[in-house]
């Protein structure tokens, strides 16, 4: 296990479309713990990229680097070069608050605000002044809820608390909340972990629809889901990026032994 040599694809590779996000030699430490080791990867613009890998390998950690959510963890230290549209995300002049408005996030655990369903979705648009008046906000809320395929279930109870929803409904509410801000990049950390197959299919439909305009990064533990929704896939293992490339190639013909074992379910 010690001689794992990461086989990251060079960014100049021909089949890669223009990258939205480029990461070079990202290292993350939580105090003493070295959680990400020399991760270099490109996330293509207007497409879906899936991060897969066994639990605890650093997928969420990498996701949180992209919108600088790791700033909120005092013991967390991030080094390396991470750029969006060629601009260094960690440069001192950059305001992480503005970055996060452009890079939305759906968290691994659903975390609706203890406000009404309506207020949960209206939260972001109100903050950023995306809507001039009440009717505009109404429109944004309804369309976001519809896209997250939650609207039909909650249209009669928009005033109810978001925390009164079921786990799967909460997850979709958090998706609606994130897309209501109209970010350029959406980071989804296991957005379907609590969803039934029908809701999952609807979310995957949504992801497929969103990718024409947005860049999407999705963490998932479901190989099938990664194969269905993503164009590119990256495999993480013990804090290292083992390999990344076109999804079909990763699943049909992985270059690395570890990837093959993981995909075929021999460990993880």
């Amino acid at each position: 296990m010690n001689d794992i040599a990461p086989l990251a694809v060079p960014p100049e590779q021909a089949d890669a479309p223009r990258p939205k996000i480029t990461a070079r030699n990202i290292n993350v430490h939580y105090g003493e713990k070295h959680a990400l080791k020399d991760v270099s990867v490109d996330v293509p613009e207007k497409g879906v990229m899936a991060f897969i890998g066994p639990s605890g390998c650093g997928k969420s950690t990498f996701l949180r680097c992209i919108n600088r959510m790791n700033d909120t963890i005092p013991i967390c230290r991030v080094t390396g070069d991470l750029r969006m549209d060629g601009r260094d995300i960690y440069e001192p002049g950059l305001d992480p608050v503005l970055l996060r408005a452009r890079v939305g996030m759906v968290f691994q655990k659903p975390n609706p605000f203890p406000k009404s369903i309506y207020e949960n979705v209206a939260y972001g648009p109100r903050l950023h002044g995306l809507a001039g008046d009440k009717t505009e906000i109404d429109e944004i809320v309804v369309s976001a809820l519809k896209k997250a395929s939650l609207f039909e279930e909650v249209k009669d109870r928009l005033k109810d608390s978001g925390t009164s929803l079921s786990g799967g409904q909460q997850q979709r509410l958090c998706i609606a909340r994130a897309i209501a801000v109209r970010p350029q990049v959406i980071l989804m950390d296991e957005p379907c972990s609590a969803l039934d197959p029908i809701a999952t299919a609807k979310i995957e439909e949504l992801i497929d629809e969103l990718r024409t305009n947005f860049t999407i990064v999705i963490v998932t533990h479901s190989m099938q889901q990664a194969a269905r929704v993503s164009q590119r896939t990256a495999f993480f293992h013990l804090g290292k990026l083992i390999e990344d490339g076109v999804t079909d190639q990763i699943f049909m013909n992985p270059r690395h032994e570890l990837t093959r074992n993981y995909i075929t379910g021999r460990f993880g």
Binding site: N67, R102, F107
Partner: peptide
């Protein structure tokens, strides 16, 4: 903390998060 994260993740500043999420909760 997850409520703070949710608010920061939507691009809220610290004081906005305090005013709109933490104090009401």
């Amino acid at each position: 903390q997850s409520l703070r994260d949710g608010s920061f993740g939507l691009g809220a500043t610290k004081s906005e998060t305090i005013k709109r999420v933490i104090l009401p909760a």
